[in-house]
Design a protein around this nucleic acid. Structure first.
Length: 279
DNA sequence: AGCCAGGCCCATT
DNA sequence: AATGGGCATGGC
């Protein structure tokens, strides 16, 4: 994969073996993309882009070229990562299916709130709830395009509002977490912590348990020694040949022990592959 | 109709 | 530290 930037206008990605828009945006790491005809639109933080997939390249149309270069992790060698994962059971098939996946570098606050909403929820409903929150509380970037709201905007909207857009019993968690962040919880410090310390700090937020914390770390801090364990991974775990185990903590420990710093990548290839087989 | 969803909180043990 | 019940709501 290689790319060329036209500053403030577009990014052209060539060599699509490591960059497939559908794989990147529909593997479950991000909730704010939409497929429109043969293009995908995407809002991330305060930035917006349109991705046009062609036969042998992808054009990312955006004024925020620097932001999306980092966001799409364009300077990382996914060919090397995939070759190192080939040795593991099931990974060759999973990689063959989702070979264009990349782990995004998303905004921390947006990822925290999004994955609090994701708990015990299904992806279509998560997307609807988040989109509603953005159009109601975010800033209008373009016609029909809204940024992710600030913590202040969410707190001002209140608990009854949050329940009304489908967050259900998670509404007080979201509010409490926003208030913590407004009252001195240091999001920036997470970026320089080791992954264990970051987990512990994230777990102090309301509505953030081990799985959600790991997702936040993987999708916004690029801490790849994380293997988020959800209901899908519990099924995948058995298929990888491990002995039956109910404890998510033990499942996580054994998976991270196997995949090490490649855990997050392995998790995404496997998650996308297994989920597609069910639908 | 009833089970399930990218689980977490809280009380008990 | 580990276990189990309760939980809003819509997708399928």
């Amino acid at each position: 994969m290689n790319y060329t930037v036209t500053a403030g206008s577009s990014i052209e990605v060539n060599g699509l073996d490591d960059f497939i828009v559908e794989h990147i945006l529909e593997c479950g790491q991000v909730f704010r993309s939409r497929k429109v005809q043969n293009c995908h639109t995407l809002v991330a933080g305060n930035c917006f882009c349109i991705l046009q997939s062609n036969i042998d390249n992808v054009i990312i149309k955006t004024s925020d070229t620097e932001f999306f270069t980092k966001y799409f992790d364009l300077d990382r060698d996914y060919g090397k990562i995939k070759s190192e994962l080939q040795m593991y059971d099931k990974l060759p098939d999973a990689i063959k299916f989702g070979h264009g996946i990349r782990i995004l570098n998303q905004d921390i606050f947006e990822t925290i709130i999004s994955f609090i909403i994701s708990a015990n929820n299904n992806i279509p409903r998560i997307q609807k709830t988040i989109e509603r929150m953005c159009s109601d509380l975010g800033n209008k970037l373009e016609e029909g395009i809204y940024s992710f709201p600030t913590a202040e905007a969410i707190v001002d909207a209140g608990e009854e509002y949050l329940k009304g857009i489908g967050t259900g019993y998670r509404a007080p968690y979201i509010l409490d977490t926003c208030k913590k962040i407004l009252n001195g919880y240091d999001l920036e410090s997470l970026k320089t912590m080791n992954s264990k310390d970051a987990t512990d700090k994230l777990l102090s937020l309301s509505g953030v348990g081990p799985k959600v914390a790991n997702c936040i770390q993987l999708f916004s801090l690029h801490q790849t020694d994380m293997f988020p364990v959800d209901t899908w991974v519990k099924k995948i775990y058995l298929d990888l040949g491990f002995e039956p185990e109910n404890s998510p903590k033990k499942i996580n420990e054994r998976l991270v022990n196997r995949f090490g710093n490649l855990s997050g990548y392995a998790q995404q290839y496997l998650f996308y592959y297994y989920r597609s087989k069910q639908n």
